[in-house]
Design a protein around this nucleic acid. Structure first.
Length: 884
RNA sequence: GCCGAAGUGGCGGAAUUGGUAGACGCGCUGGUCUCAAAAACCAGUGAGGGCAACCUCGUGUCGGUUCGAUCCCGACCUUCGGCACCA
């Protein structure tokens, strides 16, 4: 029998697809459109690992499946080539990013083709091409014109490696999104997009999309909408300023006010004689990094300005303090402190001996001093005419009162800040603005786009924190589009997330020259039907792209409100588990790297800065059944994996796996090993199972004698036909439903593997050649096609139809009634415990089922003479006798 | 601290969402074939007991609801992700 030879088959069909342009999308097709997209990658010099493929393979499978179901599928690929990762790589390797990204992209394209991904490569885009970034600039101008792009100075995040960062790019542990440490704030003049103006819509419109709830919630939390009130306080010197509070009901309990150290009124409100102390405090706060400030969250510090303000609700005179636990950027940078009902204010008041006045009584409160701030709802006390009201009602009443007297109003505050988008970097899209002495900031006219990024050899970031482009004199010096006088170009570039905020539109009409995209085609093809990518981009790319899209909507470019109708995340793939010789690891010292038996590297005791890649498990948890452990007594520890990384030498490339097992096996394994959003370690062993399965399928379809039965067997062809129809109908149902829900693992396990196992049991040479047998084979190939496209093509050519791609065939339909079994196994229970199983006809009556169940000897034995008081009957499922 | 997700064999994971726990695959054990090994194929494989038919236990822990709980409720433990002085 000819063996399944993936290498030969795969080369053959990849060539066929290329020559026949199999994956070209016709955006004008009459068919229903389906837009299937994966986050476009930044092409790295390391190439793709098997981990990255957990993003691309599911997309490819869905694309193929939808195509077979009659949709015109748009499934493109491109490169997120502008931005820091590319520039950093270029600096490290001394290659110009314009060259390196092209080389890397070509390698990505080769690898994606190698694993059988069917992209329409005629739509390949690269965000660093002038033909692309010209439209990124066009969008910038659109935002600018709409007042959504502006330049401002302030304290902003700064990464020693990456430079200026958006808030979204800073992680809680003081590192940036690229993993660099030392992130801190510094005063910077930067460009921003006014994303905060869209905060409410970014929250509300999440109701329109099918996204993981977790992801939606993370975006909502990030935006951080809080409803409350602005309250106006007047100082004794006649100054007015706002505080924001979410608890207007506690206004009578405000016993002091706190300004952020950077607040503009601090100097003015500082009483004579306290200047030195206040200055020192403000300087100290400024010097302290944001990270240090939040690390010291428990310990509150502050100083009294010496000034007082008047509480607008009761005319009370209360002191104004300065403290760094109040953030300038949130609300108005000033708060009313209500120590009785806020934990932070409580601590501060305790420390500085400020009064604590309860105005919302906790349930059962006896008037005693509080041990800590009570932040819950309760009944209002010490609040003038509002006493006795529930606090939520009181909050509304107080806001009304403030509005009536003009001393405050209902208000909303957000955690999200405007999006810092400028970078003092070379490798990015130039901001299309010129600065003119006479006219000021002037937008480059759309007709003059693109503002080309000049090709320079020295593109390293400057110590001065200024753009390297400043050094390119003949590029910087230009004429003002408005007055023709001398002007300077804006030398900042746009961060990479600007480029990726609209790329999904460019794929629809990649060569369109009259705008960023053909709006008619855009209307038809948007929103993206299925978007696949990692959850790490939840508050970066996925938030930014939604914002841009909404601006386009407002501009009338697109009639849809959301860009991505359905979103799913793929899980992370960790490095393979292994075993480590503890003794060897110890020998080389605390921070040493030891080589385990499996060839994996291990940080046994990572340094402060380095991440723990592997964690040795306690000996008790070792897999004692494993030979590798038991041969070596106690010296080996099982090692749980961390993420794949080049520095650890544990990256598995698709190239190596394809060579050994074939692309179809790699695809099958990536889909089969776990649900697509699960995180799990890579395990090369698992590939064997997929390869064996393909071999079995191959043998079944091409060599009928592989089946369990011979022509002489008692299972007649007719009987086999009946069973075969049921098996294959069930398989179609399972595969169709699972693919629609992206449940690839069970689609393969139960839709394909189990089906083949069952078919083996009824298969004989004669049956294989019967019309039923041939029909089953054909359907099986179709079901296989999205997962293993090369193998499916080969089988399709051999047993069904040569010359045409299996992807031009239709996905099979199923018929519930044919898939249904004639008999079912019913469970017989006594008091809810399983005692017997009986095989009965599918349409059995309750009466008959009870009779048969009662007849079971096991039932009599377990009833043990007790009377049956109740019988639970679940049709087609079980009969349960309840005794006593 | 706050928000969220998850804990099932030696491993990855199934389970029609209240009705046969462990599908499918890996690994392991035994067998067939072979001089031998690999591959392939066949059988077995949650734990404990029994010659056996069978019995008992078993889905992180403890309790509850129910004829019946991996699934629902309460408390707790653990792991992972996100946020974190946001008034």
């Amino acid at each position: 029998m000819e063996r399944y030879d993936p290498v030969a088959i795969e080369a053959k069909w990849q060539k066929f697809w290329r020559q026949n342009d199999t994956y070209r999308t016709d955006t004008l097709s009459e068919k229903q459109p389906f837009y299937c997209l994966e986050f476009f990658p930044y092409p790295s010099g390391d190439g793709l690992s098997v981990g990255h493929l957990r993003n691309y393979i599911p997309g490819d499978v869905v694309g193929r499946f939808m195509r077979m179901r009659g949709y015109e599928v748009l499934h493109p690929m491109g490169w997120d080539a502008f931005g820091l990762p590319a520039e950093q790589d270029a600096i490290d390797k001394g290659i110009h990013p314009a060259d390196s990204t092209k080389t890397y992209a070509a390698n990505y394209r080769r690898q994606l083709t190698l694993v059988g991904c069917g992209y329409d490569w005629s739509r390949e885009i690269n965000s660093s091409d002038p033909d692309y970034y010209r439209w990124t600039q066009w969008f910038f101008l659109m935002l600018y014109r709409r007042g959504l792009a502006y330049r401002a100075e302030g304290m902003q995040w700064w990464c020693p490696t990456c430079g200026a960062l958006a808030n979204e790019e800073v992680l809680a542990d003081g590192t940036c999104w690229r993993g660099h440490s030392g992130v801190h704030k510094r005063p910077l003049k930067q460009w921003f997009f006014r994303i905060t103006e869209y905060a409410d819509r970014l929250i509300d419109d999440l109701d329109l999309v099918d996204w993981p709830e977790r992801t939606k919630r993370m975006q909502v939390n990030w935006i951080g909408r809080s409803e409350g009130a602005d309250v106006v306080f007047r100082t004794e010197s006649g100054r007015e300023f706002n505080v924001f509070t979410t608890r207007p009901d506690t206004l009578y309990g405000a016993t002091f006010l706190v300004l952020a150290p950077e607040h503009s009124l601090v100097a003015e409100l500082t009483e004579a004689g306290r200047g030195e102390e206040i200055d020192a405090y403000v300087r100290h706060a400024a010097a302290m990094s944001e990270m240090d400030r939040s690390a010291a969250a428990g310990d509150k510090t502050g100083v009294f300005t010496g000034s007082y303000a008047v509480n607008p609700i009761n005319g009370e005179r209360i002191p104004i303090w300065v403290a760094d636990y109040v953030l300038l950027a949130y609300g108005s940078g000033a708060i009313m402190a209500v120590p009785a009902h806020d934990e932070r204010d409580f601590r501060f008041a305790k420390k500085y001996n400020l009064p604590i006045r309860v105005v919302v009584a906790p349930p059962g409160w006896d008037g005693a001093d509080l041990e800590e701030g009570f932040v819950g709802d309760g009944t209002m006390v010490n609040s003038g005419t509002h006493d006795g009201k529930p606090s939520d009602e009181g909050a509304r009443a107080i806001v009304e009162e403030l509005e009536a007297t003009g001393r405050g109003k209902a208000s909303v505050a957000y955690r999200m800040r405007d999006w810092l988008i400028s970078r003092q970097r070379y490798w990015g899209c130039p901001i299309p603005i010129v600065h003119c002495d006479g006219c000021g900031e002037v937008a480059v006219p759309a007709a003059d786009l693109p503002v080309l990024l000049p090709h320079v050899d020295d593109f390293a970031p400057q110590q001065s924190h200024r753009s390297p482009l400043e050094a390119i004199g003949d590029w910087v010096h230009t004429t003002c589009p408005s007055c023709d006088g001398p002007a300077r170009r804006e030398t900042d570039t746009l961060g990479g997330f600007a480029c990726s905020s609209w790329y999904y539109l460019r794929f629809i009409s990649p060569d369109y020259a009259d705008g960023p995209f053909d709006t008619e085609a855009g209307e038809r093809w948007m929103p993206v039907d299925l978007y696949l990518g990692g959850s790490e981009h939840t508050v970066m790319h996925l938030l930014y792209a939604r914002f841009w899209f909404k601006v386009m909507y407002d501009e009338g470019l697109i009639p849809h409100k959301e860009p991505f109708a359905k979103l799913r995340h793929q899980g992370m793939l960790l490095a393979e588990d292994g075993w480590i010789d503890i003794a060897t690891a110890r020998l080389s010292g605390d921070t040493a790297i030891a080589k385990s038996e499996a060839g994996l590297a291990v940080h046994e005791n990572p340094d402060e800065g380095s991440r723990l890649i592997y964690t040795a498990r306690p000996k008790a948890e070792l897999d004692l059944k494993s030979e590798r452990i038991s041969t070596n007594g106690s010296e080996w520890a099982a090692v749980r994996s961390g993420s794949m990384s080049k520095s650890m030498g544990n990256v598995v490339t698709p190239d190596a796996i394809v060579e050994k097992y074939g692309a179809d096996s790699l695809r099958g394994y990536e889909l089969f090993m776990a649900p697509m959003d699960g995180t799990l370690p890579w395990s090369e062993n698992g590939l064997t199972g997929i390869l064996r399965f393909y071999q079995r399928l191959w043998d079944l379809i091409l060599f009928d004698g592989a089946g369990r039965l011979t022509a002489d067997d008692p299972v007649e062809i007719e009987e086999a036909g009946r069973r075969g129809v049921r098996i294959v109908q069930r398989a179609i149902k399972k595969c169709t439903e699972d693919l629609a829900q992206l449940r690839f693992n069970t689609m393969i396990a139960n839709g394909l593997m189990e089906t083949v196992n069952e078919l083996y049991a009824i298969w004989s040479p004669d049956f294989g050649q019967s019309p039923e047998g041939r029909d089953i084979k054909q359907k099986l190939i179709l079901l296989l096609a999205p997962v293993a496209p090369h193998l499916a093509e080969e089988l399709w050519e051999r047993v069904v139809q040569g010359g045409r791609s299996v992807f031009d065939a239709e996905w099979p339909d199923f018929d519930e009634s044919l898939a249904a079994s004639e008999t079912v196994t019913m469970v017989v229970q006594v008091n809810g415990k399983l005692r017997d199983r009986i095989e009965v006809g599918a349409g059995i009556s309750e009466e008959r089922a009870r009779e048969l169940a009662m007849a079971s000897p096991a039932v009599a034995a377990h009833l043990d003479g007790t009377k049956v008081s109740r019988v639970i009957y679940v049709p087609g499922r079980l009969v349960n006798f309840v005794a006593g």
